[in-house]
Nucleic acid binder design. Structure first.
Lengths: 219, 219
DNA sequence: TATTGTTTTAAACTGCATTTAAAACGAAAA
DNA sequence: TTTTCGTTTTAAATGCAGTTTAAAACAATA
């Protein structure tokens, strides 16, 4: 009979564990994060993590139960840390135009700053696409109740063309996100280096905003 | 010293091998294809493939050298079979409007008909994003020389707004492709069943076309 | 019939995540 | 202080993955 420590994921008593297990658990968490960034999730073994964290192999399983769990913990942590602003913008009382502009720019900046976020997302989608619906934290990346209502309302008022909010939202996140997923392809086909790709992505902030606004502008 | 059979990938003498090795090589290929569809690439082991094909474990490596290679062969085959039309449309002499409309519809139909294409693409992007640039066959999914020129020309002639063809093309494939990648998320958040999701995707044909055309319409 | 190259086989090898069972540790109770 | 008991750590084993090896079976042909 094993006694597993309270999970990292169970953050109601997050503070308490941290006081106690800070060293080992945090060491595993940090080492894994660094290695996942550096080599990708699949190409880092738990032995790598253990040796980088300076702990015994079995401790990874003792604290996180599995590599998959550790991955989820890191991903959840990363998403939570980075998407607060995004949700705030969508739920704000900004004018629709300004809201879209800010959302697009903020989302792109987040993805530029956190390459891990992109590759984690890809990893989850790849591993089992269904799983993503089970991760509550993903709502933070696809939650838009107020925004949806706003589009419907503005359409009724005649301030914009009547627009299907689902299509509109899918368009928006597709144009923002997908280029990061196919980054090597875009760089290769357009002969861009890293710097130029980043510039291209920055251009897209304005480009996407214009595209979206033009599509809802009333005739 | 081993004597590997001429590779499946080397299709200059494709016919010849097929006459000889049809049984075993094709059995492996077919079994793997079915299992990859059914359970996903990572969740099918080479032992699964061998037992489904009714052959010895080592034969998979004898014919395809590695599981990765087998995967590539299947992917390449699948892309080649399905993207002929797509390239034809982009390279045709159609009017820009009509060309965009046909391309969007054809691309979406292909992805609807071949779920494997989507998950294979994700698998490659996930495994090593860089690898995708090495697969010549991917040009078929991202090749647009004549199309690019056409957008520039029409812009100069004043038939459309002057438009950056790279952004335009990225927008187009993002809006077409990405929704398939996040299918479970869209279904979950909008409470769609399979049938409704497919209907949603069909709607997108017209939606995306309108979106793209509106963005290049001259003021 | 003997030879040579090809195809198939059984078994081993390597590296991986995970599990086990026991040992070490630390704090609280006796 | 010593005992006790839950927690943390350890070394070793387990089982499954892809791949490799070396020999056997087979087929064609000289």
């Amino acid at each position: 009979m094993h006694h597993y420590p309270t999970s990292f994921l169970n953050n109601t008593i997050f503070q308490n564990i941290m006081a106690k297990n800070k060293n080992t658990e945090q060491k595993i968490f940090d080492a894994a994060t660094e290695l996942f960034i550096e080599k990708g999730v699949d190409r880092t073994s738990v032995r790598d993590i253990a040796s980088k964290a300076g702990i015994n192999l079995a401790l990874m399983n003792y604290y996180f139960r599995s590599k998959e769990n550790l991955f989820d913990a890191i991903f959840t942590n990363l998403v939570k840390k980075n998407t607060k602003d995004l949700v705030k913008i969508l739920d704000s009382d900004l004018e629709l135009d300004e809201k879209i502009k800010q959302y697009v720019a903020a989302y792109i900046d987040i993805l530029l700053k956190n390459p891990l976020l992109v590759s984690f997302f890809m990893a989850i989608l790849h591993r089992s696409r269904e799983k993503i619906t089970e991760m509550e934290v993903v709502s933070l990346l696809y939650g838009r109740d107020k925004f949806t209502q706003q589009i419907i309302d503005e359409g009724k008022k005649g301030n914009i063309r009547r627009t299907d909010p689902t299509h509109f939202y899918v368009d928006m996140i597709s144009m923002i996100t997908f280029p990061f997923a196919i980054r090597p392809m875009i760089m290769d086909k357009n002969e861009l280096n890293d710097e130029e790709f980043i510039a291209f992505i920055h251009e897209r902030k304005q480009h996407i905003t214009e595209m979206l606004l033009k599509s809802i502008k009333p005739c």
